[in-house]
Amino acid sequence: MALAFRSEGHGDLARVGVAVCHGFTGSPVSMQGWSDYLAQEGFAVNMPLLAGHGTTWQELSKTPWEHWYRDFEASYLELAARCDTVFVAGMSMGGALALRVAALHPVAGVAVVNPGLTFSDPRAKYSGLLKWLLKSVPAIGDDIKMTGISEEAYTRTPVAAVHELSQLFADTIARLPQVTAATLVFRSSVDHVVPDTSISLLKENLSNAELQLVTLENSYHVATMDNDAPLIFSQSADFFRRNIHAL
């Protein structure tokens, strides 16, 4: 299991930070390749292990969404204290957390991969009730086209945590008009976890920010570990370089 990751910047990018966030039921494993790439390029990088993750699904079931946000916000703030410019990046739920940070703090740009704002499973809307009747459902992890790759996510998804996630999504959607930083979205053409309604809502509500959408033709949901990962890594780094002086 990968733990939190922190890297000092170096060279011309020494004081340019990127706060990176993993997704729901996952861990930094899914984002380690991206974080390593950015660190090697010279960016200062912070990637937390979110509360309730990297332990057991039972632990996640007891964790409020505010704790996930708190952990990612702390990573951003730590970078902001030692860098001149800070970007945020995330995948899936990590994308929602990155967008929420961007709504509340002066980030220079946002790069997200298959950001989650809605659910594919229609049962999710009833999770506030179902959590009292059903403790967990089958896992949503490892939606990866490339064979033999695992993000090491939980083997079960706690229903109580899905209810928390729905609250995070609602809060983030409401705050999207507050985001003013340029936003780069990588979207897999086939994603079995996050539905297209998430992207539609993002387009509709991100009304005060420049939005660029890049389609990933050869990856599923966990695209940071899939065939299109090199494209995500290089294009996001270029995006960050272009927006260093955005603020």
Rank of each mutant, 00 (worst) to 15 (best):
M1Q: 02
A2E: 14
L3C: 09
L3W: 12
A4V: 07
G9M: 03
D12L: 15
A14I: 04
R15H: 11
V16L: 08
V16S: 06
G17Y: 01
V18S: 08
V20T: 07
G23D: 02
G23T: 03
S27D: 09
P28L: 07
M31G: 05
M31Y: 11
W34V: 09
S35K: 04
L38K: 07
L38G: 08
E41M: 11
G42S: 01
V45P: 04
L50V: 02
T56S: 09
K62E: 11
T63F: 01
P64I: 02
W65L: 03
A74W: 05
S75E: 04
A80S: 15
F87K: 10
F87H: 11
M91I: 15
S92V: 14
L97H: 03
L99K: 14
R100F: 00
R100N: 03
V101I: 15
H105I: 00
A108G: 11
G109H: 03
T118G: 01
P122H: 07
A124R: 12
S127G: 02
W132E: 15
S136T: 10
V137F: 01
A139K: 13
G141N: 13
D142M: 03
D143Q: 03
D143S: 07
K145I: 00
M146Y: 07
T147H: 14
T147F: 06
I149Q: 12
T155R: 12
V159I: 05
A160F: 05
A160P: 03
V162F: 10
A174G: 08
A174I: 05
V179Y: 05
T180S: 08
A182K: 11
D196H: 03
S198Y: 06
L201I: 09
L202C: 07
N205R: 15
N208L: 00
E210Y: 09
L213P: 00
L213D: 03
N218Y: 00
S219F: 02
T224W: 03
D228I: 05
I232T: 02
F233N: 14
A237S: 14
D238Q: 13
F239T: 13
A246E: 13
L247C: 01
